[in-house]
Simulated assay, not measured.
Amino acid sequence: MTVNRSSVLSVDYFESYFRLVMTSRNFVLEEAKEYMISNFIQGDVMLYGEDSYHSFTDAYLRLKKIF
């Protein structure tokens, strides 16, 4: 997936991405989080900036209430 590094990725973007990873790989939320950190964020949580990282964590916390 190509992402423009100058844009801020939204909470909704990350929530959708979490759901996609969970569905396609049959992962639980925590497994999806680890997968996204290692593959999408490439181990650098600030790769897409602080605001995008906050969106990532907010999406994770939102989904944690559901799953």
Score class of each variant (00 low, 15 high):
residue 35 Y to G: 12
residue 34 E to N: 12
residue 39 N to T: 07
residue 62 R to Q: 09
residue 26 N to G: 05
residue 27 F to K: 10
residue 17 Y to L: 13
residue 29 L to E: 09
residue 22 M to D: 07
residue 67 F to L: 12
residue 18 F to Y: 07
residue 34 E to Y: 02
residue 52 S to D: 06
residue 66 I to P: 05
residue 64 K to G: 01
residue 49 G to D: 07
residue 36 M to Q: 01
residue 7 S to I: 13
residue 35 Y to D: 15
residue 4 N to L: 13
residue 42 Q to K: 15
residue 54 H to S: 08
residue 64 K to Y: 08
residue 65 K to N: 12
residue 47 L to A: 06
residue 62 R to T: 05
residue 4 N to W: 10
residue 57 T to A: 09
residue 14 F to V: 03
residue 60 Y to E: 04
residue 12 D to T: 02
residue 19 R to L: 13
residue 29 L to T: 05
residue 5 R to M: 14
residue 54 H to L: 13
residue 30 E to F: 04
residue 12 D to V: 02
residue 16 S to L: 07
residue 53 Y to R: 15
residue 53 Y to C: 15
residue 56 F to I: 01
residue 48 Y to D: 11
residue 14 F to R: 00
residue 44 D to A: 13
residue 2 T to S: 15
residue 21 V to G: 04
residue 47 L to S: 05
residue 65 K to A: 11
residue 24 S to N: 11
residue 34 E to R: 02
residue 7 S to F: 08
residue 17 Y to Q: 13
residue 36 M to V: 00
residue 13 Y to T: 03
residue 67 F to C: 10
residue 6 S to G: 04
residue 43 G to W: 00
residue 57 T to E: 08
residue 50 E to I: 04
residue 58 D to A: 13
residue 4 N to G: 13
residue 28 V to I: 09
residue 38 S to I: 03
residue 9 L to K: 07
residue 24 S to Y: 05
residue 52 S to F: 03
residue 64 K to H: 07
residue 13 Y to N: 05
residue 34 E to H: 03
residue 11 V to W: 00
residue 20 L to W: 05
residue 14 F to I: 02
residue 1 M to Y: 15
residue 26 N to A: 07
residue 44 D to W: 10
residue 29 L to I: 02
residue 3 V to T: 06
